[in-house]
Design a protein around this nucleic acid. Structure first.
Lengths: 170, 170
DNA sequence: CTTGAAAAATGGCCCGA
DNA sequence: TCGGGCCATTTTTCAAG
């Protein structure tokens, strides 16, 4: 399941695929400096061991009519485990909520919401989110624009065989 | 450049590629109910017209040793256009900052930062972020876990030829 | 790593609404 | 005329040597 270490080639592959998820295996191999078959084996291994969790097309929200990104900080009345899970389940049922992060400290959750316009967001806010029994307060901050949007994590391409995770997933 | 409308087939393709960015063109075609060549033509058109901005592998942060996600709310002293751009340029040079959103209202920027541990985050915070001339205040909220992480936008797969963006990109 | 067969991508051409 | 389907060639994938 979990690999011991990633060498420079693995990290090159991860970095390339993070940057261009449809890169051909042969190009991947060229850039990594090995031939195609071993490169493909590495990719499969990275997928199966969980380093690569999936591949996704990046779709332009605005083109699809989603003009508004809002970050909502949600405080709950009860933080009992059952109630937290309950809220997360609710969140999963709302397609407008694209990300939900549980936070340490005063605010309990940070939600990233994408909506067609402020009107639909407000409708979601008043008819769905604040309607929840356990929601104490919501503070919304509308995003004006995303000036940086990197994918995944910074990957060190140097030769060092450094820090890789060795524990459980999630 | 910009397409008139997306039909059900285009939306199916977008949805499928958003979900699995490495889906084969033939499978994509099967699922969309057309043959491979016209399907590929549609994909290329979606790419060239900007509906699809790229493809990315989703890499597990924890496996790569990035155990900590922090959201930082940054207020600037000066919001003059030059200073805003200046800050965004700085942000672009920090690999730990994965996303930067300019916000409406009191807090100026929301940064999503990924770090190996709290120690490295604190180091970044004190030696980089708060060292910036124009940074007035930073409020950090550590993420405990991401309970939801969807990619892109909700895509309506019904037959309606509804709302598609018709303006400029960014 | 190299080879080679199977599958996918992709361009050309013809067809129907 | 704009797409879609069929066919053929090139490229890629991927198992076996």
């Amino acid at each position: 399941m979990r690999r011991t270490k990633l060498d420079r080639i693995d990290r090159q592959i991860l970095s390339d695929l993070q940057d261009n998820g449809r890169m051909t295996n042969v190009e991947l191999a060229q850039r990594a400096g090995i031939s195609a078959p071993p490169c493909l084996r590495r990719v499969r291994a990275l997928e199966e061991s969980g380093y690569i969790k999936g591949y996704h097309a990046e779709v332009d929200e605005k083109f699809l009519g989603y003009g508004v990104t809002v970050f909502a900080f949600v405080g709950l009345k009860s933080q009992a485990k059952t109630d937290l899970v309950n809220f997360e389940d609710k969140v999963n049922g709302w397609p407008l909520v694209r990300e939900c992060h549980m936070l340490q400290g005063e605010t309990d959750f940070l939600l990233k919401i994408v909506a067609r316009d402020m009107e639909s967001y407000n409708k979601f806010l008043t008819e769905e989110l604040t309607e929840e029994e356990n929601v104490a307060h919501v503070r919304s901050a509308q995003g004006i624009h995303a000036s940086k949007r990197s994918f995944g994590v910074p990957i060190d391409l140097s030769d060092s065989d450094d820090a890789v995770y060795d524990g459980e997933s999630d």
